[in-house]
Every structure is written in structure tokens, then in C-alpha cells.
Design a protein around this nucleic acid. Structure first.
Lengths: 127, 127
DNA sequence: GATCAGTGCAACTCCAGGGTTGCACGTCCC
DNA sequence: GGGACGTGCAACCCTGGAGTTGCACTGATC
């Protein structure tokens, strides 16, 4: 998987191959994706509030948010005693572009293989 | 994460929320991504050949291929005693579209929040 | 100041999954 | 036919990570 083929380099978190790795790993967990949905819908939310809406403890939520933060998918801002988290689209944008480019690469390769196979088949028919 | 917002429904594997789940989980492992790279580069490859190019056993490769197959990212075809695997772009295409749509959704939501905040700020300045 | 609320640190549990090894069966080739 | 090769089944190991609980500190409110 040639991660350098993507346009990733303009955002945070998924700026290189390691960034895409980290984002994909972060997105692989269903609880984390649910967290991202809640954050995107509500703007800024604390871990405690998020935990009220999920069937896991606050501590589990904080652990997941740490993974998401490390991946650049969310950011936290302290307001007094509260830490308010929000989504950050840059890493997701970059990973989406990387995946689109990869899918296009696969499509191109398969189309080329198909053309070669059809040419070989046509050559066989002429013999 | 509103998986139903994507255009996923026209391909295999990532046809619904469960499909995106499975693809993301499949892509989260670095060994599997390396496998996908090798398959995409070479067209059709056996598990044994793949294992020669990776620092893991053939059995590990087969396990990973099973995950990729279940996600719709690869398919296997038996030729005599061999099973030849190749990438299938549809599930990756669908997941890429889903992610692009999600990133756009996040961008839109953040832009709206920013506009609301700026309007509130302007209203405060007029008092 | 006392109480409540949000947070952070840390220890703990447990199991899924990434990986290995062993062995048997079917296919291929000389 | 026999040996080499590719495969599939299955048992096994172990660790990372998803989740829990306990406790202390700080900020907010009355």
C-alpha cells in the first residue's frame, strides 16, 4: 500500500504513512466511531457527557479520545475544569484522499490487466 | 458515524454500515495493508508466494487473506492445487466514498459552527 | 467552607487476534 | 509411483487494547 501516493501532506495527523496508519487504526473501533459521530453532531462535548451517552465508563471514553487525539481526529480544549473535545477534519480529509487515490490505483491496475488479457485472447483467436 | 450517508450500496462488502466496519477493521492491520500492496502490484498471487515476501508464516498470511476476503477487499480463485488471490476494488471504492462524505459532513458542520460563533460575536459588538 | 462535579493517574481484568507449529491431504511433475 | 509442493485444519501462545474500578486533586456552586 503505497501511502505516499496520496495527497496527504496538507493536514495534521495523516501527513505521512504513519498518519494514515494511526487514523485507520483509530477508525477501526466501533466505539470510537460512535464517539466521533456524537462529537460531530454536538460540536464540543466533555468526556463525562459522552460517557453518559455510551454503554462504557468515562475512563474508557477518555482512553478512546486519547487515541483519536493522537490520530489528529479530535482535539481537546480546557475550559476551567472541563476539557471540551471536538472533531478535526484535516486528518480525516487526508485519509479519505489517500483511500480514494488507492482505490483509483487498484481500478487502473485491474483495467490494465483486463486489457492485457483481452489482447492475449484476441491474439489466440487469430492463430 | 452515520454510515448510511455514504454512497455505499453499489459495491460488495461495504454495501452497508457493517461493510464499512469490516473494511476499516481489515485495513487497520499493517501486515494486511502490505498484503494488499503486493496483490495490487502483482495481480494474482498465492498465499505461499506472499508469505515468502513477508516476515510471517504462510498460515498467518492465510488468516489475513480470510479477513480481507470477508471484507470484500480480495477474492480467491482455485486453479488446481493453487488458490490465487487478487484485489477487488469495489469495497475499497465504497469505503472511500463513505469517508469522503463523512469528511465533507464534518467540514460543513464546523463551518456552520464557525458562522454561528462569528454572528454571536458581531451581535455582542453592537451592544 | 462544605459539597458536588469533572478530571487525571494508575492498577487491574480478560479476550480477540496476530502469529506459530504440526500434520494430513490433494495436486503436480519427473 | 514417488517426491515435491501448495493447501487446509487445528491446536497453541501471548500480548495489546478495550473496558472497569479506586482514589485523589481541582474547579464550581451555594
Amino acid at each position: 500500500m503505497t501511502d505516499r501516493e496520496s495527497g496527504a501532506g496538507t493536514g495534521e495527523g495523516a501527513s505521512d504513512a504513519e498518519g494514515v496508519d494511526v487514523v485507520l487504526a483509530a477508525l477501526a473501533d466501533p466505539t470510537r466511531r460512535h464517539l466521533l459521530d456524537l462529537l460531530a453532531a454536538q460540536g464540543e462535548v466533555t468526556a463525562t457527557t459522552l460517557a453518559e451517552r455510551l454503554p462504557v465508563t468515562r475512563q474508557a471514553v477518555v482512553k478512546h479520545l486519547a487515541v483519536l487525539d493522537a490520530a489528529g481526529l479530535v482535539g481537546g480544549r480546557r475550559v476551567g475544569r472541563e476539557v471540551r473535545y471536538e472533531v478535526r477534519p484535516a486528518a480525516l480529509d487526508a485519509t479519505a484522499r489517500w483511500m480514494v487515490a488507492l482505490a483509483a490505483d487498484w481500478d487502473r491496475r485491474l483495467a490494465r490487466i483486463k486489457r492485457v488479457a483481452e489482447a492475449a485472447e484476441a491474439a489466440e483467436r487469430e492463430e
